[in-house]
Design a protein around this nucleic acid. Sequence first.
DNA 1: ACTAATTTGTTTGACTTTCGAACAAATATT
DNA 2: AATATTTGTTCGAAAGTCAAACAAATTAGT
Lengths: 420, 420
Amino acid sequence: MEAKDSKKIFGWSGPAAGAAIFRIIKEIGPLSRTEIVKQTGLSKSTVSVHTKKLLEMGLIKKEKEKTDKAGSVGRNRQLLKFAKNNGYIIAIDLGATGLNVALCNLDAEIIEMKVSDILVNSGPKKVMNKIDQLIKELLESNQLEQKKIFGIGMGVPGPVEFSKGLPVSPPIMPGWHLSPLKQILQEKYKCPAFIDNDVNVMAVGEKHAGLAQDVSNFIFIKIGTGIGAGIICEDKLYRGSKGCAGDIGHIGIEGEEELCPCGNRGCLEIVAAGPAIAKKAKAAAKNRESEILLKILNKKGDLTAKDVGEAVRRNDLAAINIVKNSGQKIGQVASRLVNFYNPSLIIIGGGVAKIGNHLISAIKEEVLRRSTSLAVQDLRIELSQKNDEIAVIGAAAMAVNEIYSHDNVTEMMYLDGSSK
Amino acid sequence: MEAKDSKKIFGWSGPAAGAAIFRIIKEIGPLSRTEIVKQTGLSKSTVSVHTKKLLEMGLIKKEKEKTDKAGSVGRNRQLLKFAKNNGYIIAIDLGATGLNVALCNLDAEIIEMKVSDILVNSGPKKVMNKIDQLIKELLESNQLEQKKIFGIGMGVPGPVEFSKGLPVSPPIMPGWHLSPLKQILQEKYKCPAFIDNDVNVMAVGEKHAGLAQDVSNFIFIKIGTGIGAGIICEDKLYRGSKGCAGDIGHIGIEGEEELCPCGNRGCLEIVAAGPAIAKKAKAAAKNRESEILLKILNKKGDLTAKDVGEAVRRNDLAAINIVKNSGQKIGQVASRLVNFYNPSLIIIGGGVAKIGNHLISAIKEEVLRRSTSLAVQDLRIELSQKNDEIAVIGAAAMAVNEIYSHDNVTEMMYLDGSSK
DNA sequence: ACTAATTTGTTTGACTTTCGAACAAATATT
DNA sequence: AATATTTGTTCGAAAGTCAAACAAATTAGT
């Protein structure tokens, strides 16, 4: 069923009208047949034939209400839309200190999400067992058979060789190196599985259902324990030649000397990410620069970036300065990316993004100051609006994109009739 | 003849097998029909029919000698190749202080090149007249009628709105702002014309006929009067959302304070490009740090980056240090791009690239030191091998790519029979 | 030389996909 | 109820593709 290798290079995937019609319905639907004719340039008859087949196959469905029409007179149009509830996707967002597993529909909408606080460094065996358990719970509570799961998408906090679904030397995932996650999931659930870096997955999420839905070129920056970026280029995820594009956490900041576990000094993430903020806050507390921080430190015995966020919310000057300082450093790096990549949007997400507006305004200020005027002309810099779910949404969207790729749909429609 | 707007979004450009066959012949030809069958997955009959049509249309031709065959027995294969001499392209490379106009074939090979030292700041009228004159000379000396010119490609030293072919506020091209170059050329020569930034054009040249032919993701860095980069992403030129991607000359270098005409301080190009090298060389000469430089300065009354190159070749320590210093700064910026973009190749070109090996080795050293190990794992950094022609080649290749785009070829083959 | 085997490329007839035009359906206006 | 208008389907023709048969060119082996 797999196409020949050569096809991937100079592909001829068979007649493509059917797949084009499906794609347009999925992406800008609901649409009437007449509207599809206008959009694609195909003939009425072709659209009619293919929509009929797509309806039979269950890939699309009719909008229930016969809604408004275009003109004032004439027959009502019959809107067609993607059959997003025809199957389900399991989406997994594995973080350093937490695990989200969600049941999603085929439009990557979350139906139910399970949250666990398992640690990634407890190793793949334990974590994969937990995932297994959560999936079972999700299937049960929604009374779904396994065969209704069309695919699995997963984001992990480290570099991944995407095609094979293998983590490669992930710094914060000891024991996961080359663990065959894709294979494990595929064999257990008898469906395709796709694994990628968490930041990539989040970028895909923003493209699919977040702030970037109408944006072709943007950068998603995640600020958490580390700092990383996901790059969308001409509407598609860009992974780079070795799959490590967007690894901006280890860009050096001039004048910073702190040693990073990576071996270099002054890396962005070691001086500006969550732990750096916490560390500076502790110093500020001990130096009595901030009453609030000191109080929290004394009470809990430790300080986290979250606590700094709390202090910021209470207008603590020291905390605000710490956050601003991080923002400036991130903005410094971002400004260079803007000159080079000229995106029309930068989205800031990750745990530390919740720390308050001072972070993003410092980033903005720095980017506006340092980037060329043409590059910032239509640039927006915004906070992720679905920070807690975007990774799960993205993992599901990634799986859906792969499953309903143009070639796959062509194959479904023309080569055999038996969908799934 | 132009497709509807909507088609550009969810295009159905008609049956595509013919165009796929053409493309594979053009890009990895010469090929026999049997080899095309293997590569594309199409049937023998389809390939036979379409190659026949392509031959009739003159888009491809038979290899003259019946060459070697695959196995030891059996009929000889008939190799088919792109008919690269079926028409011609005019390629124009406009630089700050020079103008190259070349007659190229459809594979962007230079047939004859005219060089002029006209200054870009003498304005569009004068320059366009000169271009006109050179084209006329080229056509005459090669006894070509105008209708044999299938298209025109042009690179200019400043930002361009590609789709309209308009320079937008180009800093070193006073008087060219919004000058309708595309329109002028199209009307005068009755063929499509394409205008882009010179660095973009050079990147396309390296992809088509230079060091990057087999590379999908790379960056071309031009070091001359300014510094800019051309980005190839998944085999295609990436222009960014406002068309100014790759504008790395105005990335700030920490600790540098020199004021740039752009308004910021310490921009890469103001501290590391050709003029900066010349300026430092003058200072070194005056401070008697270098005998050689002083001698040249006294003789010519001025020093250029080229003179520094000469001094480097004569092992002048001061000159070498100046060059190394520039290389380090460029390498510092490049290392960040490597982390972010993860290319598999960086090509260094432009006038200053000729200054000798110290420049590129300094860049390499800096990138290897500062970038993550995964990102530099298979990274090559190389000097452009066709520095003087690559812009012209790229301008021609850009035009050819547009003229023979998949959709255009499909249209030629299926919609009417009349090519051109 | 002649035959067999092998590889390349073409032709043929059947099948599939697409289109244009005629037709059918649904709705507003008169 | 008749008419105009818009939406969607059906049908026969045209175009594109394929598998299989056929033709051509070449080597190897008698």
